[in-house]
Design a protein around this nucleic acid. Structure first.
Lengths: 166, 166
DNA sequence: CTGTATCCCCTGAGATACTG
DNA sequence: CAGTATCTCAGGGGATACAG
């Protein structure tokens, strides 16, 4: 997300001028910043099924890389959402599992998942219609009170470009 | 959040082998990708209070830039979560408001907001303890590396730059 | 097995200037 | 007022090689 705080270096417990939103933000960001990345949710979901070892998680979450799995689990641990237990066995073994707090978050995520499923089609449809309109607009060179100019780059950026670049 | 589909599973055998999680992902990502950025949630929340015009939103959401407000609202419109109405009045006027679907999402977000507030302290505490342990470890094992989600950037990033750039 | 360190590209997003 | 276009920079995250 960036937030560009390049030259900040504040004292952690610093001010942080209240929340931009008097009563609606207040921490949502903290949660979303965590859920926002590509893997956290998946790890959370996997762990909600039970304790897992490093490799198990890796296998359960296809596209993830070792690095990202490490980073992700570490963040989760730091926030007290996941607990890590290391066994000094010959082949090292580590177990990850949700803390009670982690479980409650996982529950919230499930709610979102349900919502997603329920509205997936609606969203896809909406996107289709929107993109269509944009395309039209461009083709017709903006006739009347066209609500929108050309999506020169606006629409462009939205193109899911999934091309297997090779 | 990026999701960089570029390298996700391009040259891999299949076209993103179905959902990584047989039944837990399936669209959550679509939602999270939207909620993940810095402004979407705030816009959603503001609109959940009622219809708003461009400037109103801008003022209601402190740090946001025109560009980001435009980008964010446009995304929401595309996904059918927000509806845009343009009035061809002398000083142009545009109104944004949640669609029914948008409202239901806003509700989910509220749930997350509540969760956040309820666990904010717990998370902060957990981080504190975790960071403490890390520091200890470093002190005892010289040059261990200073690697991770240390507050260096993770906690740091929370600084919302509210500077009233005059 | 469980991580860690390095290189590197891509995307998000702020600043700024311009248009209708 | 309501946007759009462009430049730029920092961070996320993938790939890969190395380590305990």
């Amino acid at each position: 997300m960036s937030v560009t705080n390049t030259a900040v270096s504040p004292q952690v417990g610093g001010p942080v001028p209240a929340g931009p939103c008097g009563d609606d933000d207040c921490g949502i960001r903290d949660v979303l910043d965590r859920l926002g990345d590509r893997w956290t949710v998946l790890v959370l979901v996997e762990l909600s099924k039970g304790t897992r070892r490093f490799r198990e998680l890796e296998r359960a979450i296809p596209g993830i890389s070792q690095r990202m799995l490490t980073v992700t689990t570490k963040r989760l641990c730091r926030d007290g959402l996941v607990e890590r237990t290391v066994y000094a066995t010959v082949p090292p073994q580590t177990e990850y599992r949700l803390t009670p707090m982690g479980e409650s978050l996982a529950a919230m995520v499930s709610a979102l998942a349900d919502w997603s499923r329920d509205h997936k089609d609606a969203i896809t449809g909406a996107r289709g219609r929107w993109d269509e309109q944009q395309t039209e607009g461009m083709a017709r060179a903006v006739g009347v009170t066209t609500p929108y100019p050309g999506p020169a780059s606006a629409a462009d950026r939205r193109k899911p470009r999934q091309e297997p670049l090779s």
